[in-house]
Design a binder for these strands. Structure first.
Length: 634
RNA sequence: GCCGGUGUAGCUCAGUUGGCUAGAGCAGCUGAUUUGUAAUCAGCAGGCCACGGGUUCGAAUCCUGUCACCGGCUCCA
């Protein structure tokens, strides 16, 4: 028989030949590296029997697909080991994921991290024994019987489409319901490690029982595994919670309350710089600033619909002389009230009102996470009131504005989602469709690739979300752009049109950075705490060599301050080496050493955080260079 | 909120099977040193061992409740 290879060449094989035979025919090296195959686009085991005319590709262990298959097999071996060690365990599912794999179990009694070593040991035995993975096709009755003691597997079986065959894989006497494919034998799982155990609801639904999930990872070589573990350690060093403490930027105080960060001087200064930039850019882009109070009568939230649809995220009302007031979870109703304070003409639109608006939302204790998930945060919010004919252009310019902001802060990578109507929502189908279409069209006009996030919209409208990843690769939603036909209706806001009749404006809710808290958290991790010059709370620290250089050092400091640069003078009576070390630890962009040589020459010795010792430079040159660099925001 | 783990000085961590005044390094303070590109030396001070209850002759250590934090799930900017 003949089969076609990916390069369209055709090889001849004996009838009944397997994918592995095909790999062998191509070359011994390929056969050795092979872990699975694709036949006519479908992933199969190497033992898969080929048919005449098949198009075949060999999946090797160093390819992304091969790695995924190996990790999936590692999950299977994990399950083998667990079933051997903990009798009566029920099996959930065990897929490969981005950086490894996991398997969900329901143990007869809880296990903890300390069990991982034992399980890993057992896995090593299984790997060493090189048990082959035996694939079997099962009829439903057989499968039901085989997994009689496995309620979760039964559930999966019951949901398998009738036309699909149930398959199982067996190694070392352990059989798992699994679609496959797997590596040919357990010995092909090279370097692996179990990382953690965590709770996970069966099928990701909190109404379901909670299982114990064991996470692990696997690589083709020990070296790659070690590198991966090293990356995890590096990520820990970039963690904004660690750096926030080290750099004295913020802290979260138990007595103040969980999820309520306190900004220290340096952190607050970074915020101030960002906020100034943000306000300036908004004013330059046709926005006006507004401000609203932090609490509002419960009546406002009833009108807006928050009281009905957003209540679980809102704090309990407080009583003020018999009236109920709510701490705001969103800024929109306040801005709408400003709109509604007088008659609006079509000539005024689009109205663009921006505010760094602090909101408070009830977040369940388990979700809080440093600055990335808090209970009180400041959104870089704005509400645009537009005529229908302006909607699309406005969304497009908001998207362009976002891209500009993210780029300025050094983010070139993000994920874009279009979130559609959730279960709990207000408004007509027609409005939801119009709003969703407007967002979609705009994304396409700008040419941004996006994914649909079904049912993830806000209760009053669909949204575009942009997510940034933290040091550990977890995605955090920052940017949000929402089109809203509903709140204008609920508040009955209008503008007078050219025809002298009242018309309903459409609202765009948008936050470019999302919230300052989350964004700064991401920013800290992005720069690993070493902020670019324009954001650095201290841009240069002056290091006099001895006390007699203090006057000159002060002169240098004064000169740079005159240029609007943020400088500090290290007065400590430490060695130069120590002063440099301290400045390095604080990740100050420039360290300026001044001693006899510099004082005589009227210059400074420049050491940059990024580049090390740069040698002497005149004060004027340095000042000009720093000012330019800060302006360029590089 | 749920599952598992953790909580000792400002920070990072020791603290044997329950048993002496709970230790170290860094940071801080004091003194000496006046220093040339990532740590000068010495001394001092600093702890309701997260908080509350219990077991015990005796608890940082064991049990229990609360709170916070970490990893994950669910949920979100």
């Amino acid at each position: 028989m003949k089969v076609t290879l990916p390069d369209n060449s055709i090889i001849e094989l004996d009838d009944g030949a397997s994918a592995l035979d095909a790999a062998r025919k191509v070359g011994a090296r390929l056969a050795k590296a092979a872990v699975a195959a694709t036949v006519n686009g479908e992933r199969v085991d190497l033992s898969h029997q080929l048919a005449d005319g098949d198009s075949i590709g060999i999946v090797t262990e160093d390819s992304p697909e091969g790695l995924e298959i190996m990790r999936h097999s590692a999950a299977h071996v994990l399950a083998s080991a667990v079933m051997d060690l903990y009798h009566g365990t029920q099996l959930g599912i065990g897929p490969a994921i981005a950086d490894g794999f996991y398997y969900d179990f329901k143990f007869p009694s809880p296990i903890s991290d300390s069990d991982l070593e034992k399980i890993e040991e057992k896995m090593r035995e299984i790997v060493k024994a090189k048990f082959s993975f035996e694939r079997r096709e099962l009829c439903r009755e057989e499968a039901a019987e085989k997994f009689g003691a496995q309620p979760f597997k039964q559930e999966l079986l019951a949901e398998l489409p009738p036309e699909e065959k149930a398959t199982s894989y067996t190694d070392d006497g352990f059989t798992d319901l699994c679609r496959g494919p797997h590596v040919p034998d357990t010995g092909r799982i090279k370097a692996f490690k179990l990382l953690s155990v965590a709770g996970a609801y069966w099928r990701g639904d909190e109404k379901n029982p909670m299982l114990s999930r064991i996470y692990g990872t696997a690589f083709p070589s020990q070296k790659q595994l070690d590198e991966h573990l090293e990356r995890l350690k590096e990520a820990e060093r970039r963690d904004h919670r660690v750096l926030g403490k080290q750099l004295d930027l913020f802290h979260i105080d138990e007595e103040v309350g969980a999820g309520l960060p306190l900004w220290h001087p340096k952190g607050a200064l970074i915020r101030k710089i960002m906020e100034d930039f943000w306000r300036d850019e908004h004013l330059a882009n046709g926005y006006e600033m507004v401000m609203i109070p932090h609490i509002a009568s419960v009546e406002l939230w009833k009108t807006s619909g928050h009281w009905g649809f957003y209540r679980e995220n809102m704090y309990s009302p407080m009583d003020i002389e018999g009236q109920e007031y709510i701490v705001k979870p969103m800024n929109c109703p306040g801005h709408i009230k400003i709109y509604k304070s007088r008659t609006r003409s079509y000539r005024e639109l689009p109205i663009r009102w921006a505010e760094l608006g602090t909101v408070y939302r009830y977040e369940r204790s388990g979700v809080l996470h440093g600055l990335l998930r808090v209970r009180g945060f400041t959104q870089d919010d704005a509400h645009l009131f537009v005529r229908p004919d302006q909607l699309r252009d406005e969304i497009v310019s908001v998207i362009r504005f976002v891209l500009f902001m993210l780029k300025t802060f050094g983010f070139e990578e993000y994920e874009v989602y279009l979130s559609t109507r959730p279960e709990k929502s207000v408004g007509s189908d027609e409005h939801w469709e119009q709003a969703t279409a407007a967002l979609k069209d705009s994304l396409e006009e700008v040419g941004l690739a996006y994914e649909i996030d079904p049912g993830e919209g806000v209760f009053y409208g669909p949204k575009i979300d942009m997510k940034i990843r933290d040091a550990l690769g977890r995605a955090w939603q920052c940017t949000t752009i929402q089109v809203d036909f509903n709140l204008p209706e609920r508040f009955d806001i209008t503008y007078v049109g050219e025809d002298n009749a009242e018309h309903r404006p459409i609202m765009i809710h948008r936050a470019l950075l999302g919230s300052l808290e989350r964004f700064i958290g991401c920013l800290i991790e992005h720069y690993a705490g070493a902020f670019p010059l324009w954001l650095a709370p201290v841009q240069a620290v002056i290091l006099p060599i001895a006390d007699r250089h203090m006057d000159y050092a002060e002169q240098v400091a004064r000169r740079l301050s005159e240029e609007g640069l943020r400088v500090e003078l290290d007065y400590s009576r430490e060695s130069v080496g120590k002063k440099i070390r301290n400045a390095e630890m604080e990740k100050v962009p420039y360290m300026l050493v001044v001693g006899d040589r510099e004082e005589d020459a009227g210059n400074v010795s420049v050491r940059s955080y990024a580049e090390g010792d740069l040698g002497a430079e005149t004060l004027e040159e340095l000042a000009a260079r720093m000012v330019r660099q800060a302006e360029e925001k590089a």
